[in-house]
Design a protein around this nucleic acid. Structure first.
Length: 413
RNA sequence: GCGGGUGUAGCUCAGUUGGUUAGAGCGCGGGUUUGUGGUACCUGAGGUCGCCGGUUCGAAGCCGGUCACUCGCCCCA
């Protein structure tokens, strides 16, 4: 048994659980489609640079959490740890820069070598949308609104909070970053071990530290909002105004930051406290720098990704595999006669199954377990009269019918 | 990668201070029913007690290691 298990953090999806995933994915794609975001599919692995260039070496995603390998032609490839880079790469590749805006949706597996927890796996699914080619704040609002409606459709909005912040444009952020470094440097001896490292690698990360020692220092740290230049400031105000206009509730969290280098301006997270420390259920922001980092022209973009497993953990839904008709023969030799009947039923869209083995009693027990509505029984008597015995398994009523009559009864039901 | 918890039948879990053949409920198989289910009753199968090693006359229970899950950190959807 030992070597039959799945790899750590990689799980099988049995019908019950898969069903929930499908509900999440289906409603995500549906609502996106209504907003004219067209679904695309991109490879699950790319040349490593597609991820290493834009994600930056300050991000754990590409430094310690990646699945990198060489194929037979010695190319260095990476299983995708996120979707956005690949989508933008595909967009550039297809020459769609000439035809903006472009709105895309996608879903599929992502891979990160992390310590698994509930709602955090090494192979997990994300569903995301990207709006490319619009620098207007309107696009940010649209994208957030779409995300909110998605969660609403899943009926979990009452368990969700929306937090937003701005990282400013690259100029504002650079000045802010310097201000943070100088502020935190004064407290260097009191910072947590992790945050001392962050100070040189990614000082913004100190802001969302959870350690008690850091929290006190962070409390009085300079806020990004004070360092925004005019454009960045009005853009953020416009976004808040837009959300108000849509009656979308949010809180401004000045400590909300992003791990990935390509983000700028808007950052947002839909979170829940139902999933322990994996509370972020849908998150995204603006990434105007990404296209250029990939070697393309300047193309603004904004989007989000949602964790399918995390959302699936939150929705109430049970997979009930109900079957309409079961077919059973008096003995094995009648199974041959049942095959064409099964074919006819399925051709008429009726979900059916032949119960091949066991005596009649066994077959009926099996029919109950399958939650079948009707049974078709075929034996000597029926063959002689050229009819089928049709039994309503709820009422227990039986009658002798022709196949055409059975089809009518079941399809009209 | 770091720290805590857990691991006994297909599932949910009992198992006393270490003591002979390791239990229950549900589920599964067979029967009461040779062409009829859901209920009921009878009955049976199924466990290397996660894995490896150690302590002991003796380990499911103690110790060490390891693997998996889980909670927190890091990070993130």
């Amino acid at each position: 048994m030992e070597n039959l298990r799945t790899v750590r953090g990689v799980h099988d999806l049995l019908p019950d659980e898969l069903y929930k995933h499908q509900i999440v994915i289906k409603s995500g794609l549906e609502i996106s489609n209504k907003y004219n975001y067209s679904q695309i599919e991109i490879p699950i692995f790319e040349f490593s640079e597609v991820f290493t260039k834009p994600l930056g070496n300050s991000s754990d995603i590409v430094t310690k959490e990646n699945y990198v390998f060489r194929d037979r032609s010695e190319d260095e490839l990476m299983l995708r740890p996120e979707g956005t880079s690949g989508v933008v790469r595909a967009f550039l590749n297809a020459g769609l820069v000439q035809d903006v805006p472009q709105r895309f949706s996608y879903y599929g597996p992502m891979f990160r070598y992390e310590r698994p927890q509930k709602g955090r796996l090494r192979q997990f699914k994300q569903l995301g949308i990207e709006c490319l080619g619009l620098s207007s704040a309107m696009a940010d609002i649209e994208v957030i609104s779409l995300g909110q409606e998605f969660l609403d459709q899943l009926n979990i909005l009452d368990k969700i909070n929306l937090k937003i912040n701005t990282l400013g444009d690259f100029d504002s952020r650079k000045i802010y970053r310097d201000a943070l470094i100088s502020y935190f440097s004064d407290y260097k001896s009191k910072l947590s071990e992790d945050s001392i490292k962050r100070l040189s690698i990614n000082p913004l990360r100190i802001l969302d530290s959870k350690s008690d020692e850091d929290l006190k220092i962070v409390e009085n740290a300079p806020s990004i909002l004070e360092f925004l230049n005019f454009d960045s400031k009005t853009r953020f105000e416009n976004i808040c105004k837009g959300l108000d206009h849509l009656n979308i509730k949010y809180t401004i969290d000045k400590n909300l930051v992003r791990g990935l280098d390509y983000y700028c301006h808007t950052a947002f997270e839909f979170t829940t406290n139902e999933l322990g420390s994996q509370g972020t259920v849908l998150a995204g922001g603006r990434y105007d720098g990404l296209s250029k980092m990939l070697g393309g022209p300047d193309v603004p973009g904004v989007g989000w990704a949602a964790g399918v497993e995390r959302l699936a953990l939150m929705i109430e839904s049970k997979f009930i595999n109900k079957i309409e008709v079961v077919l059973m023969g008096q003995s094995e030799s009648f199974n041959y006669l049942l095959l064409p009947i099964l074919k006819k039923l399925t051709q008429n869209g009726i979900k059916s199954e032949i119960i091949y083995t066991g005596n009649m009693s066994k077959k009926f027990k099996r029919a109950n377990k399958l939650k079948a509505s009707y049974a078709i029984i075929l034996g000597e008597e029926e063959v002689g009269k050229k009819v089928l015995k049709f039994k309503d398994l709820t009422s227990g009523k039986e009658e002798l019918l022709k196949l055409s009559e059975v089809l009518l009864k079941v399809t009209n039901d």
